[in-house]
Amino acid sequence: MEIVESTNVYAYKLITKKDYFAPGHRACQGCAEALAVRLVAKALGRNVIVASATGCMEIISSPMPFTSWRVPWIHVAFENAAAVASGAEAGMKVLMRKGRVPKRKITFLAMAGDGGTSDIGVQALSGALERGHDFIYICYDNEAYMNTGIQRSSSTPYGASTTTSPAGKVIPGQITWKKNMPEIAVAHNIPYVATACPSYPIDLVEKVNKAARVKGPAYIHILSVCPTGWRLAPELSIRAGRLAVETGVFPLYEVEYGRYRFTEEYLKIQGRFRHLSEEMIDTIQKRVVEEYEKLEKKIKMTEGD
């Protein structure tokens, strides 16, 4: 076996060079949402059927007669990606059962923005999660309705100025806190929930792979930096995603069958931790949480100093 000098560099090579979300789409420069879509498509490969909601990612990828999709893809409307995916999954299941389509493993992916997920699509999503369809739902959270011109959503963070929560003379932007959509998904008792960010591509790809392996619904909430809507230089998208994670503004974690854990990626990519048993990882996890809580308390105690 070759000696791997740097696990960091090696790990990136595990991601396929093949693209199923083709270049030439019409996303803005530095769009981390398009990057996230590309990574998800890489992770899932060709055996997938995608149902997309209306929103930036649909508009930029499907201007008739062109398409960026090298996998089967359907868009019906804004709020129903989860329902369309439910129908595709159920339809394929029965066709395979009846022998009209040869049996094989196909992954069903529903994708939508934060508006298409936590606002207008939350009912269809809840229904699909509750019914237990075998599919992955991915929310690409760029924290506003970008496609229609940066209007606020329930996923827009407190304080942010958008075109419908402008920083006015009396009201300083968004006055509500970000809706905790991953927690809403967890409340459906589904096998897998995770948060991810394309600034951490390996972690993202691994989570998508894991989601594809579980039987039943999986939900991944991907923070997707939008330079256009966030009023940010395009070259800062990746950095902004990293900062969101590092500062705890957008923590990366997984909930497997109700068990919460911080992402294992930190440990996994390092050869020096490769030998760790599940219990040892749990011990480390516990300690990390304790330390984090202590730190939070200290921050609170010294607030206003």
């Binding site: 059927i49 149902a51 359907i74 019906v76 409307a77 129903n80 329902a83 369309v84 995916a85 439910s86 129908g87 595709a88 999954e89 159920a90 339809g91 394929m92 066709l95 009209r100 389509v101 269809a124």
Partner: peptide, 10 residues
């Protein structure tokens, strides 16, 4: 919407 998805897969 489910009917659409199901019909689209045949």
């Amino acid at each position: 919407s489910v009917s659409a998805g199901a019909s689209a897969v045949g």
